[in-house]
């Protein structure tokens, strides 16, 4: 079982995951179309990370064309998103 796991406490709110994801599933970059959602307050402090297409339950590898892990995870500098295959973490 492959899945993305999120740790909102490590998230800096940079939003690169959103841009990477949106380009995987759309014609270009716009965080609005990301399957990952980072809920932040006006200051930009992340409060929750959500997945609209169940990537945190069962990731179906639709977005691993550029590296073997999903773009959202690959682009996460603070490692707030990680990619697990069963219990083992996959890194680029």
């Amino acid at each position: 079982m492959r899945r993305v796991v999120a740790d909102v406490a490590a998230c800096t709110g940079c939003g690169l995951c959103l841009l990477g994801c949106s380009a995987e599933h759309g014609a270009g970059f716009n965080a609005r179309y990301s399957w990952v959602k980072v809920d932040s307050d006006l200051m930009g402090v992340p409060a929750a990370i959500r997945f609209t297409h169940g990537c945190d339950k069962a990731h179906s590898s639709q977005c691993v064309c550029l590296t073997e892990i999903p773009s959202c995870v690959a682009l996460c500098e603070p490692r707030a998103l990680r990619y697990l295959v069963d219990t083992e973490e996959l890194t680029s």
Binding site: G13, L16, G44, P46
Partner: peptide, 9 residues
């Protein structure tokens, strides 16, 4: 926290 798209928070 970081600015948008920044890897150096």
């Amino acid at each position: 926290i970081a600015c948008p798209s920044c890897m150096t928070p």
